[in-house]
Design a binder for these strands. Structure first.
Length: 485
RNA sequence: GGUCUCGUGGCCGAGUGGCUAGGCAGCGGUCUGCAAAACCGCGUACAGCGGUUCGAAUCCGCUCGAGACCUCCA
């Protein structure tokens, strides 16, 4: 198993700290707005990692936080954080905002068949842990208090540790490149970052601390909660590439100082989803919410795309590549997914041909595993699954015979990869199968009778009528089958 | 301006120093009452210019183009 480690910018052999156990922390959403397509990418990427490690037999503790404090906005309202601002504008308790969007986030993730993490800690529930960590950093001499806020002393840290180890930044470049921001007079250097921020009297999210009322700096929560649930050093930390600097860089610095060792062995970063070649982001105003996509309710959408189409679309690109949104690409994904899922239905109905020559299904399975073991290359694994689809359909058409062993291997391969590892699922789940099956059987029977009489007007009337309900009939040698479009 | 990444056929997207990625779309055929689905066959792609090499789309250099980060961001 090889993982691309952002720290070394190389693929490295994965060796867990504790054999057969994986500790993984992933930066979750800031719950002040609906989840957009961009949020789906890390959720699905690390869901894939989570699922694959579990499939391999690892015991995984997967921690993904909910950010519900901090994240200062620097532009419009100085020193206010996102959730507080949203709450004030909508006349709500901050925790009402948090609850509302957390519930909606969970709904979207469930739709995408993203498994819930092992632990989903809220930053607001770990203020004490964050304060304790700040104390440790102060005690170690790597932070200073200034007017009720506490800042991390980047320059001092850089004398003994490489600040910029993750992002490739150099401290002297930071000096010349940092923009003028308010509150800098409180800092010794412009690139020092707040680990505790004083709350002004109007700030509605605030907690008492040894330095006065305030709230934790925006990198603290991940350091504190990662350490609490996964230990001072853990295996994998994931998140979007846009978090590399300063968020993850600062996390490394804080944790290293507080605990005396670097916190993470393997850093994994998913790339961005782009729209017309540009990053999709809430602050850029070009983000599409997942609900928009699922309902087709957006000017750029030619149609609605189902959650599984989105999931498959994302899995068809490697997580470290940018992925450009377009209707064409999504429509292709929709059809490809359908083809895979339909082949899985088909393979279950195939009859084995005893004595048929072996088709070397093991080679396909091996290709799937090799792909996953090579930095979770889901696109390669999917390409191999299409090889399997070819065999299944050929067998279904009678061009190919599958011996019992091959057939069993194919069934397992499809089931394991499509559902357990890639986390796909058939989308018509939820309809009343028993009733629908019965109705369809009757309708198809009537149509069959009409066709036998060569009454094609009637048979086409039935087929067209069903087509309006998105039910597609397929006349095959073994009779007529149907599927929901 | 600094740091970094990328540029693959109509579209999306893997991969790699010599052996067909794959999906979608398209064309021809088989099947079908007609379709749909499926199957068979078809496309000589790797930004440009140099260099290394027996051989490069794959390595190196330059040029052009795009993007990310440097400020909250998945």
């Amino acid at each position: 198993m090889h993982i691309f480690n952002s720290l070394s910018r190389k693929k490295e052999v994965f060796l867990p700290i504790h054999p057969n156990h994986v500790g993984m922390y992933v930066c979750g959403p800031t719950v002040y707005g609906d989840a957009h397509l961009g949020h789906a990418r890390p959720a699905i990427t690390f869901d894939l990692v989570f699922r694959y490690f579990r499939h391999l037999g690892y015991k995984v503790r997967y921690v993904r936080n909910i950010t519900d404090v901090g994240h200062l906005e620097n532009d419009a309202d100085e020193g206010e954080d996102k959730i507080a601002r949203k709450a004030r504008l909508e006349q709500l308790e901050p925790m009402e905002v948090v609850q509302y969007y957390t519930v909606r986030y969970h709904k979207n993730m469930d739709q995408l068949n993203v498994l819930r993490p092992s632990i989903e800690p809220h930053a607001s529930g770990h203020i004490i842990e964050q304060i304790e960590m700040i104390k440790k950093i102060l005690a170690a001499g790597y932070a200073y208090e200034s007017d009720g806020s506490v800042y991390f002393d980047v320059e001092k840290y850089n004398q003994t540790h490489p600040y910029g180890i993750l992002s490739g930044r150099k401290i002297d470049e930071l000096i010349s490149n940092t923009r003028e921001l308010s509150g800098q007079n409180e800092k010794r250097n412009s690139f020092d970052f707040a680990i505790w921020k004083k709350a002004d009297p109007t700030h509605i999210m605030r907690w008492p601390s040894p330095w006065g009322d305030g709230f934790p700096g925006w990198h603290m929560e991940c350091s504190a909660m990662g350490c609490k649930y996964l230990g001072e050093q853990f295996d994998i930390h994931g998140g979007g590439m846009d978090l590399l600097f300063p968020h993850h860089e600062s996390e490394i610095a804080q944790s290293t100082v507080a605990n005396g060792k670097p916190p993470v062995r393997y850093w994994m970063h998913n790339n961005m989803i782009t729209l017309n070649g540009q990053k999709m982001g809430k602050s850029l105003g070009n983000a599409m919410s997942l609900d928009d996509i699922f309902t087709g309710n957006h000017p750029l959408l030619a149609q609605a795309y189902s959650p599984m189409t989105i999931r498959f679309f994302i899995l068809q690109a490697h997580y470290r590549s940018t992925l450009d949104f377009s209707n064409e690409a999504l429509q292709a994904a929709e059809k490809g997914l359908k083809k895979l899922l339909f082949a899985d239905e088909t393979v279950k109905k195939l009859k084995p041909a005893t004595g048929a020559a072996s088709q070397n299904i093991e080679a396909i399975a091996k290709a799937c595993y090799d792909a996953m073991n090579d930095d979770f290359s889901s696109p390669m694994a999917i390409a191999s699954l299409f090889e399997a689809v070819k065999l299944i359909n050929a067998a279904n058409d009678g061009h190919l015979k599958l011996n019992p062993n091959d057939l069993e291997l194919l069934k397992q391969l499809m089931d394991v990869f499509l559902f357990d590892i890639l986390g796909l699922r058939a989308e018509d789940a939820g309809t009343d199968h028993h009733l629908v099956e019965g109705l369809m059987e009757t309708i198809i029977g009537l149509r069959q009778e009409a066709r036998a009489r060569k009454d094609f007007a009637t048979s086409d009337l039935i087929r067209d009528g069903l087509a309006k309900l998105n039910i597609v009939l397929k006349d095959g040698k073994e009779g007529t089958s149907w599927e929901m479009k």
